[in-house]
Design a protein around this nucleic acid. Structure first.
Lengths: 121, 121
DNA sequence: GATGATGATCGTAAAAATACGATAGCAAGG
DNA sequence: CCTTGCTATCGTATTTTTACGATCATCATC
């Protein structure tokens, strides 16, 4: 037990989950925001910006790379990280389409509007 | 160590992370997709649809509730789950704005286009 | 009130994520 | 070549997530 059954779900849902997971920690959101506004793209500069150690930031960067959202290029002694615009576009598409799937217009759930009671049993 | 420093990040980034975390597992994506297309909104029907046990599904539902994306209303012996359209709209806004922050047009990272080399040291 | 169905919660176990210090590898400069 | 600065990786500890079976609480029905 506890062994994450990702294989048994649709590819599309796994992909959405993969992108979402990359954004599922505030440090990674902050890193991406930093890269987006390209105040720099050097690892060290990111470390200075966050309340985390260098090794932890490096680990988060690795996860962002694994998710595909960023790319790391060696630039001499430093490493330049930047958004992978192709994967970024894909993530935007997958997440966006999923979120757009729900339209509040055709909202007619079990309980009529107003009768909605907070669940506590 | 290992004690998630969420407090030290911006509220906005924490909120984005919270929504993203809700979508960070394919089971939860599948549950939301199911609710979106409202083939039903009863817990039992969701369990039938997924390769997971009832207790695990219930746990995922709880996390979706914690994230705010869904709402559970008691309907007799059953419980009706539905998308919380207000929070859903907020999530769409927060995630969408964040993703839109990057525009590939003004893409000019450290390495000139083409020189991008896969990192492996 | 007993019974059956539904769904939450508890207890538990395994896996993954988070975080850090220490260390290793590499490039640049002295 | 030796040092210095930058980043990855290793080892480790802690916390959180994922998953299940068992059980409990509630509602509906008999």
């Amino acid at each position: 037990m506890g062994l994450s059954k990702h294989d048994e779900f649709a590819l599309r849902d796994n992909r959405i989950a993969r992108y979402a997971k990359a954004l599922a920690h505030p440090a990674r959101v902050a890193i991406l925001r930093f890269l987006i506004h390209k105040r720099s793209c050097v690892c060290g500069d990111i470390v200075d910006e966050l309340p985390l150690s260098q090794s932890t930031v490096s680990q988060h960067l690795k996860e962002l790379k694994t998710a595909g959202l960023i790319q790391g290029d060696i630039d001499g002694a430093k490493v330049c990280y930047c958004i992978d615009h192709k994967e970024w576009a894909a993530a935007k598409k997958f997440l966006g389409e999923f979120m757009d799937g729900f339209r509040s217009e055709d909202l007619e759930c079990c309980t009529p509007v107003g009768k909605s009671i907070a669940i506590k049993r």
